[in-house]
Amino acid sequence: MRALLIEMAWTWLRYQPGSALTQWFNQRTQGTGPNRRARRIAIVAVARRLVIALWRYLKHGVIPEGAQMKPL
């Protein structure tokens, strides 16, 4: 389950570049350079925050901040 959530977080970063979560990740990992460990730790935090944001969307209809929704 954890691996799936982390993949979902990487996908979120790729397809939602203007979201608050992506901006948080970029600020958090800016300046780490080749330090891959810091990015791996931060992506777990993004995955956790993303699960919370998506739960709020399902439960209350609150769209995650900065997320771009495509029309159906």
Rank of each mutant, 00 (worst) to 15 (best):
R2G: 14
R2F: 01
R2K: 10
R2S: 10
A3H: 00
L4G: 06
L5H: 10
I6L: 09
I6F: 03
E7D: 09
E7A: 05
E7N: 08
A9S: 13
A9P: 06
A9Y: 03
A9H: 05
W10T: 12
T11W: 04
T11P: 03
T11G: 07
T11R: 08
T11A: 12
W12C: 00
L13T: 10
L13F: 12
R14I: 09
R14V: 11
Y15S: 10
Y15Q: 08
Q16D: 04
P17Q: 01
P17M: 02
G18C: 02
G18S: 02
G18E: 04
S19E: 05
A20G: 09
L21I: 07
T22K: 12
T22P: 12
T22R: 13
Q23I: 06
Q23N: 10
Q23R: 11
Q23H: 11
W24T: 09
W24A: 10
W24N: 08
F25T: 07
Q27C: 11
Q27A: 15
Q27P: 10
Q27E: 15
Q27M: 13
R28W: 01
R28G: 00
T29Y: 00
T29R: 02
Q30T: 15
Q30R: 13
Q30N: 14
G31D: 03
G31Q: 04
G31L: 03
T32V: 14
T32G: 02
T32E: 02
G33T: 11
G33P: 01
G33W: 02
G33E: 03
P34H: 09
P34C: 08
N35Y: 01
N35L: 02
N35T: 04
N35R: 05
N35D: 05
N35H: 02
R37G: 12
A38P: 05
A38H: 06
R40T: 15
R40V: 12
A42R: 07
A42V: 12
A42W: 05
I43F: 04
I43K: 01
V44L: 06
V44Y: 04
V44S: 11
A45C: 10
A45G: 13
A45Y: 08
V46Q: 05
R48G: 06
R49Q: 12
L50D: 00
I52E: 14
I52Y: 14
I52Q: 13
A53S: 05
A53V: 02
L54C: 11
W55N: 11
W55P: 00
R56W: 08
R56S: 09
R56M: 08
R56I: 05
Y57A: 03
Y57V: 01
L58Y: 07
L58F: 09
K59M: 05
K59E: 11
H60F: 15
H60G: 04
H60I: 14
G61I: 06
G61Q: 03
V62F: 07
I63S: 10
P64G: 06
P64R: 01
P64Q: 04
P64H: 03
E65Y: 13
E65A: 15
E65K: 13
E65P: 07
G66S: 14
G66A: 14
G66M: 13
A67P: 01
A67I: 02
A67N: 01
Q68I: 08
Q68T: 10
Q68Y: 04
Q68E: 12
Q68A: 09
M69G: 00
K70W: 06
K70H: 06
P71T: 15
P71V: 15
P71M: 15
L72Y: 08
L72I: 10
